[in-house]
């Protein structure tokens, strides 16, 4: 009986393991037109082009107070050569946890890179994007891809 009770207690304890979750809210869509020429006819596109400072937000939850690392990677579906894409954190979000890193633009590539580190839950972390290298000489049409955020 005592053993049975102890087994139940131990089983309950083991079920309280924490699996951190990360969610992203929002996407980035940019429209480039003649209005983006730096000085009108005869000039090239302005570069870089930046999103709003809080274009998307990240929520990091269910950490159980543990430390975590967020990595990012880019997966291009159709993206022009010579045009870079970068992101940065523009706020610390809210919560009792901590957050560091990511305040400077990080150039995104196909390989995972460390973007943020911290501990505990944080919500509403604002993210901004920047595209560099756009020119009338290399870009016309629709370009897209995805960014993967992984928390470990």
């Amino acid at each position: 009986m005592q053993m049975r009770w102890m087994c139940c207690l131990l089983l309950w304890c083991s079920c309280q393991a924490f699996a951190a979750d990360i969610t992203v809210t929002g996407n980035w869509s940019a429209a480039v037109t003649r209005d983006d020429l730096t000085g009108g006819t005869g000039t090239d596109l302005r570069s870089p082009i930046e999103s709003n400072s809080g274009q998307v937000t990240l929520d990091i939850l269910n950490t159980g107070g543990a430390t975590w690392t967020v990595t990012v990677a880019r997966n291009d579906i159709n993206w022009p050569a010579g045009v870079a894409l970068a992101l940065r954190r523009t706020s610390t979000g809210a919560g009792t946890g901590t957050i560091s890193g990511g305040a400077a633009y990080l150039s995104l590539g196909p390989g995972a890179q460390t973007f943020l580190t911290g501990s505990g839950d944080r919500t509403g972390i604002q993210i901004q994007f920047k595209s560099d290298g756009m020119s009338v000489k290399n870009i016309a049409g629709l370009y897209n891809g995805t960014i993967s955020y992984v928390i470990q």
């Binding site: 924490f18 951190a20 979750d21 969610t23 869509s29 998307v56 049409g141 629709l142 955020y149």
Partner: peptide
């Protein structure tokens, strides 16, 4: 922690 992940899309339309 079991690793969690999220995916976000981006697109640029150049006229």
């Amino acid at each position: 922690h079991a690793a969690g992940s999220a995916v976000q899309s981006f697109n640029v339309a150049v006229a």
